[in-house]
Simulated assay, not measured.
Amino acid sequence: MCPERDPSKIPRDELNRRRILKSAKELFIENGVENVNMHQIAKTAGVGQASLYRRYSDKGDICLEIAYEEYQSLFDEVQGFLDKNSEMGPLDRLYQIIVRYVSFLEAKVPWLCDISRASTGHRPMQSPLCQWMRKESSILLNEAVEREEVSDIDVSYTIEALLVLLHNVDYHLLDEGFTTKRVVDGLQRIFIEGLKAQKR
């Protein structure tokens, strides 16, 4: 493990960035993203509003940076899994990614889902998490097609349908009261078992 960097040697701009993100995250978790404004973030972080606006033009920019930092642990975990399990079938690998995706969001709902939506305005399917999942799913589904492990499918549309369901995981877990197992099992039936080519 690398030793912690001496705070006195960290540039002021970087210290301000860390304070802003930490304070914003705490405020979002406590009050909800919609109920927090830039003035509150600056005050809680102990930075001037001018300093805040020099780095972030609006709350969406802060949300985007928090989202990237939060998602990185999922990205790293999945990459480690893929590196160690290249011999596993592509659909099985996709299923394992879906399980990790849902479990990751379950631990952070609803605040991280709200941050993701706020960071991308009215284009939720372009969030960093959705873009990453779109890329990983495309690689694996195209591999499954090449191996003739799936029936004739429209890969791009199938991925977009999967993303719509994953994007609403917080709604399914909190508002509908579905368990994580129910969500994951349903996704497996539709997007894994449902795509497999029928043996003749």
Score class of each variant (00 low, 15 high):
Arg100Pro: 12
Asp175Pro: 09
Phe28Asn: 03
Gly48Met: 01
Glu143Ser: 05
Gln188Glu: 15
Ile159Trp: 02
Glu65Phe: 11
Ile139His: 03
Val47Gln: 08
Met125Lys: 10
Gly48Glu: 05
Ile98Gly: 10
Ser8Met: 08
Gly89Ser: 15
Asp92Lys: 12
Met125Ile: 10
Ile10Thr: 12
Cys2Arg: 05
Gly186Met: 06
Arg117Thr: 08
Val155Tyr: 01
Glu14Pro: 12
Ile29Val: 14
Val184Cys: 14
Gln188His: 15
Pro110Met: 06
Val169Trp: 05
Arg100Ile: 03
Asn85Tyr: 10
Asn16Leu: 03
Glu30Tyr: 01
Glu143Gly: 04
Thr44Asp: 13
Tyr71Phe: 04
Asp185His: 15
His122Ser: 01
Leu91Cys: 08
Lys181Phe: 05
Lys196Ile: 11
Ile153Lys: 09
Cys130Lys: 07
Ile20Phe: 06
Ala42Ile: 03
Gln188Tyr: 15
Glu77Thr: 14
Ala50Val: 13
Gln79Met: 02
Lys43Cys: 04
Glu77Ile: 04
Phe191Tyr: 13
Arg182Thr: 14
Gln72Trp: 02
Phe81His: 09
Gln188Ile: 14
Pro90Phe: 11
Ser8Ile: 07
Cys2Tyr: 02
Ile41Ser: 07
Gln49Thr: 11
Tyr157His: 11
Lys135Thr: 09
Tyr68Phe: 05
Val184Asp: 13
Asp92Trp: 02
Lys84Ser: 15
Asn142His: 14
Glu4Ser: 14
Val169Asn: 15
Glu4Phe: 07
Ala197Thr: 14
Ala42Cys: 04
Arg55Lys: 01
Glu69Asp: 01
Asp154Tyr: 00
Arg55Cys: 00
Glu87Val: 08
Val36Leu: 08
Leu165His: 11
Gln40Asp: 13
His167Ser: 04
Ser23Arg: 02
Ala45His: 08
Glu34Cys: 03
Lys59Val: 12
Gln131Cys: 06
Tyr101Thr: 14
